[in-house]
Amino acid sequence: MNDSKWDDRTIAAASSSVIILGALLYYWVGEGQSMLELLELAYGSVKFFNNPLVF
């Protein structure tokens, strides 16, 4: 290992980055899933060229 150090700031930065990345991934995957569910519910298949809010 080089002279990089694991002090308070580094640990805080690494851990908060991991938390943020995890949370954002969770959010976006969730958004994608609920979109697919909505389309599935509206048409019985995934169609992007239509408006699921108008039946």
Binding site: S4, R9, T10, A12, A13, A14, S17, L21, L24
Partner: peptide, 25 residues
């Protein structure tokens, strides 16, 4: 609270993976 204080360190002293991690997040 996190990024600026960390980057007050000279960049060479920060673990490169941590640098990349904060940039991507």
């Amino acid at each position: 609270f996190i990024r600026r204080p960390l980057l007050r360190h000279p960049l060479e002293e920060i673990h490169p993976r941590v640098t990349k991690l904060i940039a991507i997040s």
